[in-house]
């Protein structure tokens, strides 16, 4: 049997945009994934404060949710985002990495439902949360 986590890891690490943002997949198993993105000046959305742009947070959230889907025991292959909602709770601290944790909490033959949270070093206060629905593909 192919190791789902291994396949998902290889898939995520081969994504050009994930590389461009320096994303590192730190945990992946049975429908849960953790991805960290280091702080980088090129990601700044507010030059006055140095806070990173919400779009960069969206990119990690989306990648992490996709990884969570692919690592689910019932997922046969790849996935694509159908809908993703992000709520921004607070600005991320400049200079700190963003860590996202996504869980695929329900999957059918066609659709996967995912929740995710993003934090910086202050892990008790989320920077953002996300909910999304993803397609379930038979291939990659």
């Amino acid at each position: 049997m192919v190791n789902k986590a291994k396949v998902a890891r290889q898939f995520i690490e081969a994504i050009p945009h994930a590389r461009a943002l320096g994303m590192k997949l730190t945990e992946i198993s049975d429908g849960t994934a953790v991805i960290t993105m280091p702080y980088d000046k090129k990601l700044i959305g507010d030059p006055k404060t140095g806070v990173i742009h919400g779009g960069a947070v969206s990119a990690v959230m989306d990648t992490c949710c996709g990884a969570a889907v692919m690592s689910h025991p019932s997922a046969p292959g790849g996935t694509a985002t159908m809908d993703l909602r992000i709520d921004y709770m607070r600005a991320a601290h400049p200079g700190q990495a963003i860590t996202t944790t996504a869980t695929c909490y329900h999957i059918t033959r066609n659709v996967a439902f995912v929740r995710a949270t993003a934090v910086d070093e202050d892990t008790d206060n989320p920077v953002a949360t996300a909910t999304g629905s993803f397609t379930v593909e038979t291939k990659f």
């Binding site: 994504i15 994930a18 590389r19 989306d62 990648t63 694509a80």
Partner: peptide
């Protein structure tokens, strides 16, 4: 660098969102 799925290929959903 905007590619999210190198097999299709397709733009990353995060790039689209951003």
């Amino acid at each position: 660098t905007q590619i999210g799925n190198p097999f299709l290929p397709a733009i990353h959903g995060g790039v689209t969102a951003a």
